Amino acid sequence: MKYFFSLIALLISAAVIFSFYHFKPQPKRKRPAPLIPLVETSILKRADFQVFLESFGNVIPEKELTVVSEVQGTVLAKNDELIPGGFLREGDTLAQIDRTNYELVVLERKAAVIEAENELELESGQQIIAKQEWELFKEEMVTTEKGKRLVLREPQMKRALARLQAAQSKLDEALLDIGRTAIKAPFNAVVMENNIEVGKFIARYAPVARLVGTDRFWVKLSVPIASLSYINLPTTESTKSSAVTIRLNGNHGSPIQRTGHVLKLLGEISSDNRMARLVVAIEDPLDLTTKSPSSFNKILLGSYVRADIDCGTLAGLFRIPRTAIHDNNTIWIFTDGKLRYAQVTIVWQRKNDVLVKGDLDGVQLITSRLQNPLEGMAVSTSAERKKPNKKKEQ
Rank of each mutant, 00 (worst) to 15 (best):
A14T: 14
S69K: 00
C311G: 10
V344I: 13
A162F: 09
N249Q: 12
S254L: 14
R99F: 13
D287L: 00
P293Y: 01
A182W: 04
D215G: 04
G179T: 14
E193F: 01
A182K: 14
K158L: 13
I309M: 01
G358K: 02
A112D: 07
E108M: 14
F137E: 03
K338N: 07
G73S: 06
F56M: 11
T290K: 10
N329C: 11
G147V: 08
P388V: 14
E197F: 05
V113Q: 01
E173L: 10
I83L: 04
L107C: 00
Q26V: 14
V51I: 15
A166I: 08
I129P: 02
A112G: 03
A160K: 02
R306F: 03
R340M: 11
N389W: 09
V344K: 05
P255D: 14
V68C: 04
A206L: 02
I346E: 09
R369M: 12
D172Y: 07
L175A: 06
T330L: 05
N328E: 15
R204D: 06
A167N: 00
R46N: 09
L221Q: 00
F49S: 06
L171G: 07
M377V: 12
N101D: 03
N352A: 14
L211R: 01
K357G: 13
V151C: 07
P27G: 10
P224V: 11
T259I: 13
T345S: 15
P32K: 06
Q257C: 04
W332F: 13
T239P: 06
G213Q: 07
P32F: 05
R180W: 04
L301V: 02
L301E: 01
E81L: 05
F23H: 13
N195Q: 15
V262F: 07
I256S: 03
L374D: 11
L278M: 03
R306K: 10
W348H: 11
E154F: 05
W332S: 09
L265S: 12
I43L: 02
L263T: 14
S13A: 15
L339F: 05
A33Q: 12
I183M: 11
Q371R: 15
A160P: 07
E103M: 10
W332K: 06
S222W: 06
T214F: 01
Y230E: 07
N58K: 13
E154Q: 07
S229H: 02
V198H: 03
K351S: 07
L104N: 09
A324E: 04
A206C: 00
I320W: 00
L248F: 12
R277S: 02
E268A: 08
V191E: 03
I333D: 07
S229Q: 08
Y102E: 04
G73Q: 03
K2P: 03
D284F: 09
R385K: 11
S42Y: 05
I60V: 14
F217A: 03
V262M: 04
K146M: 06
K2I: 13
I196G: 00
P388K: 12
G312E: 00
E384M: 11
N58E: 10
Y21N: 06
P255Q: 13
K110E: 15
V208L: 06
T74G: 03
M377P: 09
